[in-house]
Computed example of a mutant assay.
Amino acid sequence: MGKENIVFCKSGGCTAKLGPGMLDHVLSKIPKNKDENLLVGFDHADDAAVYRISEDLAVVQTLDFFPPMVEDPYTFGQIAAANALSDIYAMGGTVKTALNIVCFPEQMDLNILGEILLGGNSKVTEAGGTLAGGHSIADSDVKYGMSVMGTIHPDKILTNNGVQDGDMLLLTKPLGVGIVLAASQMKDASKAAYDQAVRSMTTLNKYAAEILSGYEVHGCTDVTGFGFLKHLSEMLGEAQSADIDSSVIPFIEGADHYANEFYLTAAGQRNRNAVGSDVEFLNVPFWMEELLFDPQTSGGLLASVRQEDAQSALKELKELELPCAIVGRITKRREKKITVR
């Protein structure tokens, strides 16, 4: 895909999201829905909506789309689809159908659009779902994603705010995607770092979710545009804090170097502004701080797992051959919401 057609990484992937502070301000003005069958709405910044349709069945709904962050259109389609599908897995659901969301310039080669859609369909098929249609509009820039529908039992929903004292926090993918892609845009990322970032972004969270379903999970989210720390902050209630061990945080090869070279994103700095005052860093290097604020595209699951289950779950997760780790624990509330050591 030629750069003369699309300016990639201009604000691609989840770095293109509006900042969390801006969204909080807008959503606070929208009246809350009183439908008793809406089991999960936008009240707690959860990953998807859940609507009960019977005693033993609920529908999970989500959508996500963004501009390209890689040059290959097929790979972009895979990443965008994996990212949209991830919200279903973060809620503990099963993917059923997906609808394409497409913005595409009329003067651009339609073969590019075809490759994007083929990439997206490959991930829906891998997820065990069905691509059922979609909607397109003419636009000056390419944007692509999906609206996804899944199902779940109403008693088995994984919300992002059910964490309990003593839980261990498991992260199922490495951090640093935004930083590596920023370095790649400037032609300064190694092939190994770029390839690892793409491999991570195109890997479905389906497999991690299937493993976690065998354990007692009290809260779960996927780490995307708001970065590790903001998503973790949304998981913590008024009575909880979190201790994070930065020495075990998995990250993409070279991301520490690129952060020290200031290959940072505006979205990462918005994340720092949004949640930085809730975080205490104790002897943590600058590059690690930036990794923890870095917006992730199609990032991993962050799960709050019962302490007794954590090591067994981690052992199974490591068989997925992506860097993963127990990165911290949930504690009773302290002065700072999150402590990173």
Rank of each mutant, 00 (worst) to 15 (best):
K3T: 10
V7H: 08
C9V: 08
K17S: 06
L18I: 14
H25K: 07
N33E: 15
E36R: 14
E36H: 11
N37F: 12
L38P: 01
G41T: 11
G41D: 12
A45G: 10
D47Q: 06
A49P: 00
V50R: 02
Y51R: 10
I53W: 04
L57Q: 10
L57K: 12
T62K: 08
F76L: 10
Q78Y: 05
I79V: 14
I79S: 02
I79F: 07
A80C: 11
A81Q: 06
A82G: 03
A84S: 15
S86P: 09
M91A: 06
G92C: 08
T94Q: 15
K96A: 09
K96W: 06
T97I: 11
N100G: 10
V102L: 10
N111S: 15
I112Q: 14
E115D: 13
I116T: 09
G120N: 13
K123N: 04
A127G: 12
A127Q: 07
A132T: 13
G133P: 14
I137H: 15
S140T: 15
V142N: 10
S147F: 14
V148D: 03
T151V: 13
V163Q: 14
D167V: 04
M168E: 05
L170C: 03
K173P: 13
P174R: 02
L175N: 01
M186K: 15
K191L: 08
A192K: 10
A193H: 08
S200R: 00
M201Y: 01
A208R: 00
A208L: 02
A209M: 05
E210L: 03
I211L: 05
L212M: 07
G214P: 00
E216P: 00
H231C: 00
M235P: 00
L236Y: 06
A242Y: 00
D243I: 01
I244Q: 06
D245C: 11
I249R: 01
I252W: 00
E253Y: 11
A259I: 07
A259M: 09
A259P: 02
A267G: 09
R272M: 05
G276D: 04
G276L: 06
L282V: 13
N283F: 09
N283I: 05
V284M: 07
V284S: 05
E289S: 07
L291W: 00
F293Q: 00
F293H: 09
S298Q: 02
S298C: 05
G300S: 04
S304E: 02
V305G: 03
R306V: 03
Q307R: 09
S312K: 12
A313W: 01
L314I: 08
K315C: 06
E316A: 04
E321M: 05
E321I: 02
P323A: 04
C324I: 04
C324W: 00
A325P: 06
A325N: 09
G328V: 01
K336G: 12
T339V: 14
V340K: 00
